[in-house]
Design a protein around this nucleic acid. Structure first.
Length: 132
RNA sequence: AGGAAACAUCGGCUGUCGCGGAAGCCGCAUGGCUUACGAGGAAAGUCGGGACAGCGCAGAGCGCCAUACUUCCUAACGGGAAGGGGUUUCACUGGAAACGGUAAAACUACAGAGAGUGCCACAGAAAAUUACCGUCUAGUCAUGUCCCUGUUGACCUGACUAGAUAAGGGUGAAAACGUGAGGUAAGAGCUCACGCUGCCGGAUGGCGACAUUCGACAGGGGUAAACCUUAUGGGCUGCAAGGCCAAAUAUGCCGGCGAAAGUCACUUGUUGACCGAAAAGAUCGCUCGUCUGAUGCCGGUGGGUAGGCUGCUUGAGUUGUUUGGCAACAAACAUCCCAGAUAAAUGACAGUCAUUCGCUUCGGCGAAAACAGAAUCCCGCUUAUGAUGUUUGUUUAAU
RNA sequence: UGCCUGAUAGUGUAAUUGGCAACACGUCUGACUCUGAAUCAGAAGAGUUUAGGUUCGACCCCUAAUCAGGCAA
């Protein structure tokens, strides 16, 4: 099943503030990526936040479309990462900030998301070994 | 065929995977399954107006703000409908001219400039009860001419003084009713004829704005999207309003804040209490009024929390028929329940069928598909928009 | 969500009862210098964010739009 319920989405002023304040910053075109490891388990093992800045896209139609495409790509490809993290005792928060100024199609976005998820798995393995 | 206005609709179906709340079922529970439903005409701008909610009643006067032809519609509006007046354009037409008449189209923030104040650059004599040049009359002086040589004759020209006048002075965006005649020392609506405009009164038509007509009077520019006058309306704040629950905490720190006249008490003074209502504060501003008024109030600063439920979607509602009305719209009857998210759902991929465009070897192939995304709800306005269809009237061509 | 300001040469600012759009820096040309900078002289560069209206006349007044900035919770 390739679902994407509410629990796997990051929400709440406090959690988002924490993520943007303490998260590790990296960049993979066209996304700016923020990752933060919570010490305790909250709702789900992997939580995602999608952001499209209003500065680059003035019309809410465009912002909505980009967010929907990213969410769709994430939903269809996230299962591997979720399986790896299934036994851990903490939660990984991820924020994707869309940094391009043009609207990409689904066929362009999907490979990038797959790439980002693979990197995420590698980073996760490093994090677990060092922390233990 | 072109362009205009109004209204309606924007992709359909199948498959695979998802999202949101609702209802039902299963489960101790996290949850799972099924069913139907799930963006717009502008959801936008936040420009008007309401509903709803809260605020130490919101009251009076002044100020402030908004609106401004009439009637009607509406819950209300700065919105809409119908009508009136005006402006511009074009055609025909009357007249010597000034200026009108008829018909059509487009536009119209359209109360008052004859209540008051201000302003009108440059140019022009003058920009608003004018007077520079000019024109005319009278007087004084000077020069000259004439002859009847006058104490002080007549006339021409010039200067000065006192008055009359507003015809002409070609400027300007705008010039003191227009044209013609009379009249006069010169002139002037000073008078007359024709025409124009305004105001008052009467009559007729219209609910009314107003129109037509008669009489009398007047002819003193423009600007109120300058101040203003008149009339009407306006309490303020907004669903992040407001209510409830949970969690957390600090009556934290700094500054400011009064008591007239009077009574009582004893510890007789920077005392306490009563009465009273001052300072201060609230009500958009000011004055009054009202209310609060000491473990209190006001201002500043700082700490904690920042989760959930409700408000929340059944409403000036949708669709249809009939009736009334020129229309906006209203009434009656029947019918239906039709989004409620919260870092924020309404989607992705594949195929196929329609629509439009281009190329066609007429088999097809390729491409495109506007403006744009609900956030308390509703009625308007404004702005952005590619098509397709229907209706209406208009222009051109043909019959 | 609800409000409030502003928009003028390339840049920063002026422009008052509504009457010729101004100043500084920058740019360009010339002079000075072996060359450059500084200095001196001169020139160009806008029609006032856009559209409509009021007025004889609009940066200024009114209406609508566009863009930018700010405030409250």
């Amino acid at each position: 099943m390739q679902k994407f319920p509410k629990k796997e989405r990051l929400s709440g002023k406090k959690a988002i503030g924490e993520l943007f304040k303490k998260g590790n910053n990296s960049f993979t075109y066209p996304f700016k990526i923020l990752i933060h490891y919570n010490d305790t388990f909250i709702d789900s093992h992997l939580r995602l936040l999608i952001t499209v800045p209003k500065r680059n896209f003035k019309k809410s139609v465009d912002r909505n479309r980009i967010k929907r495409l990213i969410r769709e790509a994430w939903r269809l490809n996230k299962s591997e990462a979720q399986q790896k993290m299934a036994e851990s005792a903490f939660t990984v928060d991820v924020a994707l900030v869309y940094a391009s100024r043009t609207i990409l199609t689904y066929k362009e976005i999907a490979p990038k998301i797959i790439l980002i998820l693979q990197r995420l798995i590698k980073e996760y393995e490093v994090h677990t070994t060092t922390s233990i």
